[in-house]
């Protein structure tokens, strides 16, 4: 079934979201530093796109810029284009943005308790979105809310409506968040580490729900996580981010069977998954993600890459299409590089 789904996606033409050469800069000590540095990304209707990377790689900032969530609290500068259904969101006024948030593009965050209002019931929070965006009456909104909670798999939805978020368990809170996000049937759902704070069994339930809703409602999902396991099970295609740049981009199976970028390889190798030999030294990526003010001159990953040479430190690497649909930002695969290693 997944296979059919994939083919369908490939045949469709008009992307729902297109990000072109996006840079997001924040002022630090009178300098503008790029948290996101030239990201290109397209999401087709119905596609689940995964973004993986360590903390500090800019994946959250990138997804927040789609809804311009940073505009209110910090000085921020955008360069490039974010095209949602062919309209550039970066040119929109904040008032226009307000119409799209939670309506056509929704977002769910890692910590549901911090995203839900502690002083309003589930009912009023769910109904608010519907009344605001869909301009429907209270009664209708209430009916729709119960329906939403039912769809999301909450037992006894009428009872849940009357509760405050703190009365619910973590898994239930995340479900309510998803219900609110999906209430207006958005075209695009941004899920920013939705399962990181949850237990594996609850994570399984939430991932099932996301997968199921994607099939039922056909909305596109931008799924952001640092958990490679969750990505491989859920997403159609995966982008690996490091220090504000996408370093590798491929279909899920392709990425996990033939990882090309040294960073992707390193990330995959250092997971203590169930087939790794016990208590034997795990491969690591030396050092840690440098801060924005210490981004290296050439390839961003060169300080931690064991294959880096002089050229990597001097010049930023090009984006190379190693095999059809599989791009990698690395000198190793570029013209005149160690070409014979491509596809190994």
């Amino acid at each position: 079934m997944m296979q059919e789904n994939k083919k369908e996606i490939e045949s469709m033409q008009d992307p729902i979201l297109e990000i072109r050469n996006l840079r997001v800069l924040f002022p630090v000590h009178k300098k503008w530093l790029p948290a996101v540095d030239g990201v290109d990304l397209t999401i087709q209707p119905g596609e689940i796109t995964g973004i993986v990377g360590e903390s500090g790689s800019g994946k959250s900032v990138m997804s927040q810029s789609v809804l311009r969530l940073r505009d209110h609290d910090t000085a921020v500068r955008y360069e490039g284009e974010i095209l949602f259904e062919k309209e550039n969101l970066l040119k929109w006024s904040l008032k226009q943005m307000r119409n799209i948030r939670g309506n056509r593009i929704s977002v769910i965050f890692q910590d549901p308790l911090n995203s839900l209002s502690p002083v309003h019931t589930v009912e009023s929070q769910l109904m608010e979105v519907l009344i605001l965006h869909k301009k429907i009456s209270k009664e209708e909104a209430k009916k729709k809310s119960v329906q939403m909670l039912k769809m999301i798999g909450i037992p006894n939805p009428e009872n849940c409506m009357k509760k405050y978020p703190f009365e619910l368990s973590g898994g239930m809170q995340q479900r309510v968040m998803i219900a609110i996000a999906l209430a207006c049937e958005p075209k695009l759902l941004i899920a920013d580490e939705p399962t990181t704070a949850l237990d594996v069994t609850i994570q399984e339930q939430i991932l099932y729900l996301i997968q199921d809703l994607n099939k039922k409602l056909g909305m596109s999902i931008l799924f952001i996580t640092h958990d490679l396991g969750a990505v491989s099970n859920l997403c159609h295609s995966v982008k690996v981010m490091y220090l504000g740049q996408i370093v590798e981009d491929a279909k899920t199976e392709e990425l996990f069977t033939h990882p090309l970028h040294p960073y992707t390889k390193g990330l995959l190798a250092c997971i203590p998954h169930l087939a790794v030999e016990r208590r034997k030294e795990l491969p690591t990526i030396p050092g840690s993600v440098p801060s924005l003010s210490h981004i290296p001159e050439g390839c961003h990953f060169c300080t931690r890459c064991h294959e880096a040479d002089e050229r990597c430190r001097k010049m930023p690497p090009p984006v190379v299409e190693a095999t059809p649909g599989h791009t990698v930002k690395c000198w190793k695969y570029a013209e005149g590089g160690k070409k014979n290693e491509v596809g190994v």
Binding site: L207, Q211, G229, S232, N233, T252, E253, L268, I271, L274
Partner: peptide, 11 residues
């Protein structure tokens, strides 16, 4: 447990 090497597992 999500295993990165099993893609498209049914949840």
């Amino acid at each position: 447990v999500p295993d990165p090497y099993i893609t498209n597992r049914e949840f």
